[in-house]
Simulated scan of single mutants.
Amino acid sequence: MKNKLLLTIFITISVSQSYAYAQSLSYPCSIVLEPVHEIPNISGTALMTKVKKPYTDQPGSPVRERTGVGIYADWMPQPSAFGDYDQYEGFGQIPGVISWRFKMYPIKEDQPSWFGGSPWVGKFDEISAELSAETIVSLRLSNSRTNRLGPAVLQSTLKGCVE
């Protein structure tokens, strides 16, 4: 009886995971990136879109379709507030398959917020893999001197992009 129950649970989980990967995503799509830990005010969003990119800069060059991801995060403390970090990086991952890292850039504001934090933005538009609802998008801490990627500060999956 116990083996049948375990087999049923395994099959149910396997079918659920297969279904999540088989669902197609709707583009363009935006998701809210949720704070991983309780940090006041931080918030973010990610935009996934299909982009047509020419192979060369020559007029009439054939185009290829890629998926792009852009991240906007606001009210972010300086990365050094979390330890030995000096920047944020955008990070996308199809678990167990592939991941992408891209640099985030702080935005200089004319009138910074009186309660602190600043906006950071970045994008990457060379994704050729097929994204799934299980794809993870996050804003992570990073140390540019050591190239060490730190923990996620904001994160979400693409489940909200399923048609």
Rank of each mutant, 00 (worst) to 15 (best):
E89I: 13
A73Y: 10
G92V: 15
E89F: 10
M104V: 11
W114P: 13
D86C: 00
M76P: 15
G116S: 09
G96A: 08
A81G: 07
E89D: 08
P119R: 03
D74C: 12
E89T: 07
E126C: 05
I94R: 08
G117T: 07
D125Y: 04
W100L: 03
G117H: 03
A129M: 11
A73M: 12
V121K: 14
Q93K: 08
A81I: 00
M76S: 14
E126Y: 05
P77A: 03
W75H: 15
S118Y: 01
I127V: 15
K123L: 07
Y85E: 03
V121D: 08
Q87I: 06
Q111C: 03
D84H: 12
P95Y: 11
F82Q: 01
P95G: 08
V121E: 08
D110V: 09
A81F: 11
S80W: 10
V121G: 06
I94P: 02
G96W: 12
A129P: 02
W114T: 10
S113I: 00
K123D: 14
R101I: 14
K108H: 12
F82I: 01
Y85D: 02
E89L: 00
D86S: 04
S128L: 10
K108A: 12
P112Y: 05
A81H: 11
F82Y: 15
G96C: 07
Y105V: 11
F124I: 14
E109Y: 00
G117S: 07
S80L: 12
I98H: 04
E89Q: 13
S128H: 12
W100M: 07
Q87R: 12
P95T: 11
D86R: 00
K103I: 14
Y88C: 02
W75Y: 15
S118I: 07
M76C: 13
D86P: 00
A73N: 06
G96Q: 05
Q93H: 06
Y105R: 07
P95L: 05
P77G: 09
F91M: 00
I107Y: 07
W100G: 03
M104W: 02
D86V: 02
F82E: 01
F82A: 01
I107L: 15
L131Q: 11
Y85P: 04
Q87K: 13
Y105F: 13
F124N: 04
A81K: 15
F91G: 00
W100F: 15
W114N: 01
P79F: 04
F115I: 08
F124W: 11
G96H: 06
G90F: 09
S99G: 09
A129V: 12
V121R: 13
A81P: 08
F115S: 09
G90S: 07
P106C: 05
G90A: 03
M104L: 09
Y88S: 06
G116I: 01
Q93A: 10
K123M: 14
W114S: 09
A129S: 13
K103S: 14
R101T: 12
S80F: 05
M104I: 08
Y105K: 03
S99Y: 15
A73T: 03
F91H: 15
G96M: 10
R101A: 02
S113M: 01
I127S: 05
I107W: 08
F124R: 07
Y88Q: 09
E89W: 10
Q93D: 08
P119K: 02
P112C: 00
G116T: 03
